[in-house]
Design a protein around this nucleic acid. Structure first.
Lengths: 218, 218
DNA sequence: CGGGCCTTTGAGCCGCATCAAGCTTAGTGG
DNA sequence: CCACTAAGCTTGATGCGGCTCAAAGGCCCG
């Protein structure tokens, strides 16, 4: 039940306007928030985080990676035992939940923006359920790469991008092992569907083929 | 993109009050709603439905079973290709989406009820992601039986209940095959953890043991 | 009593996990 | 600039859980 505990928050609580404050976390694996009702709603400004569920015996699942623009801490139920951890240096904008609720009540535009964001998240989760329930390792990996490509900031050409997370994180997101993820990526590289100049740098050589694989054709 | 197409709606559109109307569907496999922006929000009054995603090659996934009290059609994103199908005779209360939005804007209590309901749904989906990503067949089945037991209407003693859905539906919800579901249930019966007087009637003989299995202990 | 559907049970196989080395990269200190 | 180390990634060999294929067993309804 750790709330916004940072091992090293660089700039704690400096409000740019009345409601929000900016918080930064440096280094990997910083636990930002875990379970319970949180006092804050966060918006990711920079960096990447992971939303982690843990089983008692150590099995781990990552339900989602949080990228710039994403909200979190808004709709998380008390009982679900999950935490949010930074996997790179991160800058968050933090809103008091009370202010946020009040703001939502007055501001229909914000309300719709939040509902749309939640709707997107729900759709993504539903896709992920299908992925975990019915797709094989190759299909999962292809779909994941495309999701990551589409999440890249606009400034960058999404044909080519860096994965922000380790093989272990990818495996725990896709319900696979690091070995399987590695093998599938190697196979996609050997078939010239992706380029892999370094372990985290991805080039989409045949996007259409990758899309077909991710959708379960072929 | 079929919206509220019923093969046999018994009582179409009889408004009990200004906003809502009651709709009934008889027979199984009736498609109630599929993809796209729907004009209505539904609340389940009686019966059970399934929320289905389909892949082009026929692979199927059921992300959720809808039971009395559940809302749907509220937060479903346009692009996700899923449908909602009745698996028993069903009575739904249908609200116009426009009215619903307006009502939500004015009524903080309703707004919080809806947010809470969405929060519950999100937590359930997160649990399901962990289940599909990291649990084995026995753990999935145990967790599923407990979920179903806890969803029973209060009038019925949840130690003992009827499954509303077929083995195929259970399999498609748990990312397994009908054969595996059947085998796991048989094994749980032989270990006297559940009773199975008929194929759809479940008796929880050792709830604690089942909980331990479902959580991944043992 | 017969036919169709759902469920159960069995036999064999396959995809991914597990176990076990190597390899690459980054960081650290001499 | 080069050991040295540690962590992460890749690759190979083997095993197993759940899928596939097949058939038999219940149940419902005419």
């Amino acid at each position: 039940m750790v709330i916004a505990r940072a091992s090293s928050p660089v700039h704690p609580a400096q409000p740019p306007n009345g409601n929000a404050s900016t918080v930064r976390y440096v280094g990997a694996d910083t636990v930002v928030e875990m379970g319970g009702q949180t006092a804050y709603v966060y918006n990711v400004a920079q960096g990447t985080l992971r939303k982690v569920s843990l089983m008692r015996d150590g099995r781990r699942h990552i339900s989602r990676f949080l990228c710039p623009g994403d909200f979190f801490g808004f709709m998380d139920a008390p009982e679900s035992a999950h935490s949010v951890e930074a996997i790179s240096d991160v800058t968050l904008v933090r809103y008091s939940r009370l202010n946020f609720d009040a703001l939502m009540a007055r501001d229909p535009a914000l309300r719709h923006r939040i509902l749309a964001s939640m709707s997107d998240e729900l759709a993504a989760m539903q896709e992920q359920l299908l992925l975990l329930g019915r797709k094989n390792a190759r299909e999962r990996t292809a779909a994941f790469l495309l999701t990551m490509a589409n999440r890249e900031p606009q400034g960058r050409y999404s044909r080519e991008f860096d994965l922000q997370m380790s093989r272990a994180d990818i495996a725990d997101h896709l319900g696979l092992t690091i070995e399987t993820v590695s093998r599938v990526l190697t196979r996609l590289r050997k078939r010239r569907i992706i380029g892999l100049p370094s372990s985290k740098h991805i080039v989409l050589l045949k996007r259409r083929a990758l899309e077909a694989i991710g959708a379960g054709a072929i």
